[in-house]
Amino acid sequence: MTETACDALLAWEARCKSLGLLMTAPRRAILIAMLEFGTAHDAVTLLQAAREHHAATSLGTVYRLLRELEQLGLVQAHAPAHGRCHWRLHDSHSTTPEPAPGNVRIMVKQVQHFLRELEKLGFAEAQPAVYSSVAVPRLANHSPVDPTVDLLQSIAERLGYRLA
């Protein structure tokens, strides 16, 4: 492996670790294979290449890692009309991953950041998080005609905030 490829691998491992992924030998081998290819490939091709770096890598590990990386916005999946899905790493020069559409973890972080910003502006205040299946009561000074405010209040309370 070249010095540049080694640096790229270290950078990708750091990105994965910063997002909570455990880097095992099979996962590292899959990342190496993806970096070596540089273009989109299917899981079986990635498995064959990864096994050159870690023989015990399994197809299940390849699919699990690809799914996790896709959820974190680190890979793109391309599903042709007839054939296997192909994955490729996002541009390794980018410092922040592009969020995958529908990624719940990223959306929750964005909402939490939004609520912290509202708190700084005096429109919300942090409070102990209450997780229950009980419906959240409406704000007294908002009419039931405004469902957006009710929804935002519900989300805020689930994340430990109260809108002012």
Rank of each mutant, 00 (worst) to 15 (best):
P97L: 13
E157T: 11
Q127P: 00
Q153A: 15
A81K: 12
F123P: 00
E52F: 00
V44I: 10
A100K: 04
M107Y: 03
C6A: 15
D146K: 04
Q127M: 14
L21Q: 09
L74I: 11
I30T: 06
G60A: 13
M23V: 03
G102W: 08
G38E: 08
E70H: 10
A81N: 07
L19N: 06
V108F: 06
H113D: 12
M23R: 01
Y161K: 03
A5N: 14
I32A: 04
K109L: 15
Q112H: 11
T96G: 02
L74A: 10
H90F: 04
I155C: 12
L31H: 03
R138N: 07
L74S: 04
T148N: 05
V104I: 15
N141I: 12
W87Q: 02
W87M: 05
H41M: 14
K109T: 07
L151A: 12
D42H: 08
F114L: 13
K109H: 11
S92A: 15
L118P: 03
S94T: 10
R15G: 06
V134W: 03
R51T: 04
R162F: 05
L47W: 02
K17M: 13
L19M: 14
E117C: 09
A126Q: 13
M34E: 01
A25K: 13
P99S: 08
L151Y: 05
L35Q: 05
A25F: 09
L10R: 10
